[in-house]
Design a protein around this nucleic acid. Structure first.
Length: 489
RNA sequence: GCCGGGGUGACAGAGAGGCCAUGUGGCGGACUGCAGAUCCGCAGACAGGAGUUCAAAUCUCCUUCCCGGCCCCA
């Protein structure tokens, strides 16, 4: 079964063939570390997390690199406002980044290079570009001569002449051509800067990615990813720099994730319509957030709203309930229950979906269908122990990719236990619940047992009160033919 | 202006020539003391127009609306 990836370069799905058999170098553009991450950043991280997981699951030896842009105008400005050193602010934001991304279960990349720590490589590359005649120095800054590259615009489809019409870029006083872009920016007084052959300064935005790709992966990377908003000019310019310097193709497959929107408009700092990841995490679980993101195609825009997060939660609960049930109950039937075939088929379809340009939405649909089969079997008691095991392991494999399910079990209080019908506390209807003990499973078992006893005695009023009191404490009781089952919400 | 991507049932959102998407919600039923969960069934759709084809959400053309990019941005 062959993996196909939608390549922005050709705007088509192409069979995935890495440069070296079984090895994949993937570079994903990271964030500028001047502020906390919003959900849009999380979307990108989650999408590429799953891309990497699937590649690894297919047996590829993956090297995943994601950068931090820690030298940047906005960062400098923000640090200045706050009265801190830019690199200190950056360190703080990087901690922040890892803190939320870890919560979202993003597997760490193999390296997170920072622009500030890649300066020698960057300078090396700029020198090379100057030597080749594709860049020039002007008042301490260095610019790339865009017009010297003949196949300009192959990624974004932009043509230089068209663009100039629409652009209002003022010819920077140091640039020879308004289309040229900075490889190296001369330092203004008091700014963070590094020594270079052109004097003190700092790298331009695009060059760090080119330098890092070369340093950590090689002249050609298999997959280069990022948001669609980076296609132009960032990625286009990376191509110019890298291909000119390396004289080799820069990227085999360009992958771009769609924007997260709010009321159909791009979520962004400048529009102030963003939701910070740590804020959203206060209201929704990491699993819900991942599910929300993965329940859409990565290339399309996805609209954020509380309603859609709520719906994602409901949907995910359905899957989780089935998984929890499977983890909690053993099978009782003997002989063939058809789960081997069902699981094999589901897994095949799921893999096919993932191989089709990482169609996570379709993969999720497959799991829902398997859930229906499982629930049906669960209800009519026709699952065998091996059937349960097969289902559980299929869910686990799914979860290795998606990481949206918890390994949670529920507790069953069997109804059949006649000896426990006598309550110690029968008098009061509103029994006092000891809040200090609510985290104690055995205590909850006791309470649920009391309710169960009340039900047996047809004291439904009392039973319902216990149920609603527990519900207030986040404990949900469900009655099943086998007895009452409870779990923490 | 130029370059991209889109308009799918009540909603979210897949699919890319013939067949079921899936989830939420709605309606009916089973189960149940009730609730919930679950199962079974039902309704409801491909922006508009023209064309290609035995067959079109799916391909072509036109119209229209929306979003993204062209300063920064995942």
């Amino acid at each position: 079964m062959a993996l196909v990836i939608h390549n922005t370069l050709t705007r088509r799905k192409e069979p995935f063939e890495p440069l070296q058999k079984n090895k994949v170098g993937i570079y994903v553009c990271g964030v500028t570390t001047y502020d906390k991450s919003h959900l849009g950043h999380a979307r990108s991280a989650i999408n590429f997390d799953v891309v990497v997981r699937h590649l690894r699951g297919k047996g590829y030896d993956v090297k995943h690199i994601t950068n931090f842009t820690d030298v940047d105008d906005k960062l400098i400005a923000r640090a200045h406002e706050l009265g801190v050193e830019p690199l200190d602010l950056s360190r703080q934001m990087i901690d922040e980044y890892f803190s939320v991304m870890d919560k979202l279960k993003i597997r760490r990349a193999d390296a997170y290079p920072k622009a500030s720590e890649t300066i020698p490589d960057i300078i090396e590359m700029i020198k090379g570009l100057v030597d080749k005649g594709f860049a020039y120095e002007s008042r301490g800054s260095v610019y790339f001569i865009v017009r010297r590259v003949k196949d300009y615009g192959k990624l974004s489809g932009q043509s230089l002449d068209q663009m100039i019409v629409g652009t209002r870029k003022e010819p920077g006083e140091d640039k020879r051509d308004p289309m040229d872009f900075a490889l190296w920016k001369a330092a203004k007084p008091g700014e963070v800067s590094w020594d270079s052959p052109w004097g003190k300064g700092r790298p331009g935005w695009h060059i760090e990615c080119s330098a890092m790709c070369l340093k950590y992966i090689g002249t050609t990377v298999d997959i280069h990813g990022g948001g669609t908003d980076l296609v132009f000019p960032h990625h286009e310019n990376e191509i110019l720099q890298s291909e000119t310097f390396n004289e080799a193709p820069f990227v085999k497959y360009w992958m771009h994730n769609g924007m997260l929107t709010v009321n159909e408009e791009k979520m962004s700092k400048s529009l102030k319509n963003f939701f910070l990841v740590d804020e959203v995490l206060k209201r929704y679980s990491p699993q819900t957030i991942r599910f929300f993101i993965l329940n859409a195609s990565y290339r399309q825009p996805l609209d954020y709203s509380e309603d859609s997060l709520d719906e994602a939660k409901k949907s995910l609960d359905k899957l989780q309930d089935t998984y929890t049930a499977l983890l909690s109950v053993g099978g009782n039937a003997t002989g063939a229950d058809g789960m081997e075939e069902a699981c094999t088929e589901a897994w095949e379809r799921l893999t096919q979906a993932m191989d089709d340009d990482f169609s996570t939405r379709e993969a999720i649909a497959v799991i829902f269908e398997l859930s229906r089969t499982a629930n049906r079997k669960l209800a009519d008691g026709s699952l065998s122990n091996t059937g349960v095991d097969r289902l559980v392991s299929t869910y686990r494999r799914f979860n290795d990719l998606f990481d949206v399910l918890k390994e949670e079990r529920r507790r069953l209080i069997p109804t059949r236990d006649e000896t426990r019908l006598q309550d110690t506390v029968t008098a009061q209807i509103d029994l006092p619940i000891d809040r200090n003990r609510i985290s104690d499973d055995n205590y909850i078992d006791e309470l649920v047992q009391m309710r169960e006893n009340a039900r047996r005695r047809k004291e439904f009023d009392r039973a319902d009160r216990i149920r609603s009191r527990l519900a207030e404490l986040g404990i949900e009781i469900q009655d099943t033919p086998e007895g009452a089952v409870w779990k923490r919400k």
